[in-house]
Simulated assay, not measured.
Amino acid sequence: MPGPAPAPAARDPRGGTDTATRSRREEPTRGGRRALRGGSAPEPDDDLDITDDGPELPIVPVRRMLALAVAGFALLMAVGLVMGAQTAGVGFGRVPYAVVIFGAQLLYMFATTMAMRPPALRVVATVGVLAALAADVGAILPDAPSITPLGLVAAGGLVAGVLGQMFRPQGRMRVSESLASTVVIVLGVVSFATLIVLTRVPAGTQAIVVCLIASGIALGVARLTDVIAPWPRLADQVPRGSAGIVLGAMLGTAAAALIGRYMVPFTPHEAALVGMAAAGAAVLADLTIGFAEAGRELAGDAPTMWLARHMQGPLAGFALAAPVAYVISVVFLVPA
């Protein structure tokens, strides 16, 4: 007599095949996965932890010859601005110094515009040039030296930037980026004009000498140190070393104290404090530009023009040191 019929194989709810066939087709593999002999993709176990941090970012090398060239540019800028202040006359005799300042303003505007590349480039550049001219005129013409006209020029430049952005064919597209670039450029060119006002203030020319020499030495030494010992690195994507930043600020302060021994109305102690403030502001502004450029490259933006990219740091340092010199002169020197 025939035996009882075999029971039907159990169905696998995942694939519709019987579990016996499925068990014969599966093989355990290393790493906690199961692979199918039939060529299907492996299935990861639930307890398998797979992490992917993405590709590692490359370390940007320090280009020593480029650092040497930037150091020379910073020192030349300091010499030009200081020598121009020493030759400034009275009244319209300050026009030659205003021409020197206008040249620095144009360099700053060009470098910043090329580095930031705002969407309304022509509008931003036009506003920057007009603000530079208006600030220089406002620093020379008033009977009494004051930075009030410079504040009005800065406010007018920002308003002009907003209006120019609104009348563009693209309208309000990327308006925030354009306005941010306008703010940086207008404030920078107006800051340079404070040096013209300083030549009209008692002890202002001496303050220019102390602050700008300290700033130039700080910027130059910081870059020269990167040529010799660019370590420890502040960030892998920023080719700067912290040793240069610290050493530059220290030697800039020491140079200011030495100048204070021979320049009235400064004492070495007062000149050291003034130089420390200006040198620290200059090197920090230069370093901030480096981090901003690295951030733009990490965001996927195309590299900017190399000349503008490397000129922007020292120019921003002098643009920040100029109002520092004015504030220190008016607050500490004029009342004395």
Rank of each mutant, 00 (worst) to 15 (best):
P28L: 11
P28K: 09
P28T: 07
T29P: 05
R30N: 12
G31Q: 00
G31D: 10
G31W: 07
G32F: 07
G32M: 07
G32V: 05
G32W: 03
R33G: 02
R33Q: 12
R33N: 10
R33V: 15
R33P: 06
R33F: 13
R34Q: 09
R34K: 10
R34C: 03
A35S: 12
A35R: 15
L36Q: 10
L36E: 12
L36N: 11
R37I: 07
R37A: 12
R37G: 10
G38A: 13
G38F: 13
G38L: 13
G39V: 10
G39F: 09
G39T: 07
S40I: 11
S40F: 15
A41H: 15
A41W: 14
A41D: 14
P42S: 08
P42C: 01
E43F: 11
E43V: 15
E43Y: 10
E43C: 10
P44C: 05
P44H: 11
P44T: 05
P44V: 06
P44D: 08
D45H: 15
D45P: 14
D45W: 12
D45G: 15
D45T: 15
D45V: 12
D46I: 11
D46H: 13
D46A: 14
D46C: 08
D47P: 02
D47E: 13
D47A: 12
L48F: 06
D49N: 09
D49C: 09
I50R: 11
I50D: 13
T51L: 14
T51G: 11
D52R: 09
D52C: 09
D52L: 12
D52T: 09
D53R: 13
D53G: 15
D53E: 15
D53F: 15
G54D: 08
G54P: 04
G54L: 08
P55M: 08
P55S: 06
P55G: 11
P55Q: 11
E56M: 08
E56I: 10
E56Q: 12
L57K: 08
P58D: 03
P58M: 03
P58H: 02
P58K: 02
I59E: 04
I59G: 02
V60D: 00
V60G: 01
P61I: 06
P61D: 02
P61G: 04
P61Y: 01
P61R: 02
P61A: 01
V62Y: 01
V62M: 00
V62F: 01
R63W: 04
R63M: 06
R63Y: 04
R63S: 05
R64F: 00
R64H: 07
M65L: 13
L66S: 05
L66D: 00
L66A: 02
A67T: 06
L68S: 06
L68N: 02
A69H: 04
A69M: 01
A69K: 05
A69Y: 01
V70W: 05
V70I: 07
V70S: 01
V70G: 03
V70N: 03
A71C: 00
G72R: 03
F73T: 04
F73V: 05
A74V: 00
A74Q: 01
L75P: 00
L75I: 07
L75A: 13
L76D: 04
L76M: 08
M77T: 09
M77I: 08
M77D: 00
